[in-house]
């Protein structure tokens, strides 16, 4: 059991560290690399939940496909000048205050023990393999959101083309 706990904290740490590095690195390529670290951490968490299919998808699609696209775009666009520019961080004290407030809340809730977090337990999944379960949920129950997501992406693609075009 302690192995599970150990790996949970390990992957959670990797995820968080990757996330922090992503937003703090000045060089966009470094940020993208840190994001890969974070995504690998999430993939590990999926594996701990015995969601092997999601683990594989996370690695293949996000770490493999989408991140390559990110890097491709970053290297295509000239970001050298942007990296040398001073970052807008004039509101850092406000951000710090917000972070401290949220941290205090989290500490308070944690100090009340695990009873403060009463999670609902979803019904255990019916029999069947990992892939089958995902397919069942995605293509039967959530068919409509799945299709609607394509409309969302289409709108986003049209939007990015409009924004990138030189003239209307």
């Amino acid at each position: 059991m302690w192995v599970d706990t150990f790996f949970f904290y390990l992957f959670a740490l990797v995820t968080l560290a990757g996330g922090v590095l992503t937003v703090t690195r000045r060089n966009a390529v470094h940020s993208a690399m840190s994001l890969i670290l974070s995504l690998i951490g999430v993939a590990g968490l999926f594996l701990l939940q015995r969601a092997e299919f999601l683990f594989a998808v996370q690695i293949v699609l996000y770490v493999g496909g989408i991140m390559v696209l990110f890097l491709f775009v970053i290297m295509l666009v000239n970001l050298d000048q942007a990296a040398r520019m001073r970052q807008f961080s004039g509101q850092w004290w406000l951000a710090l205050a917000c972070v401290l407030a949220v941290a205090a809340q989290i500490v308070y809730v944690l100090s009340r023990g695990s009873g403060a977090f009463r999670f609902a337990r979803p019904e255990p999944p019916a029999r069947g393999g990992n892939v089958e379960l995902v397919a069942d949920v995605l293509f039967k129950q959530y068919l409509l959101p799945f299709e609607l997501a394509s409309v969302l992406l289409l709108a986003a693609i049209v939007g990015s083309v409009i924004m990138a075009r030189k003239r209307i």
């Binding site: 609607l148 969302l152 709108a155 049209v158 939007g159 409009i162 924004m163 075009r165 209307i168």
Partner: peptide, 16 residues
């Protein structure tokens, strides 16, 4: 999100 993404683009539709 579908409604919002489309309206973000509409807000900046006049690129010039």
């Amino acid at each position: 999100e579908t409604s919002s993404i489309a309206s973000y683009v509409l807000a900046g539709y006049l690129r010039a």
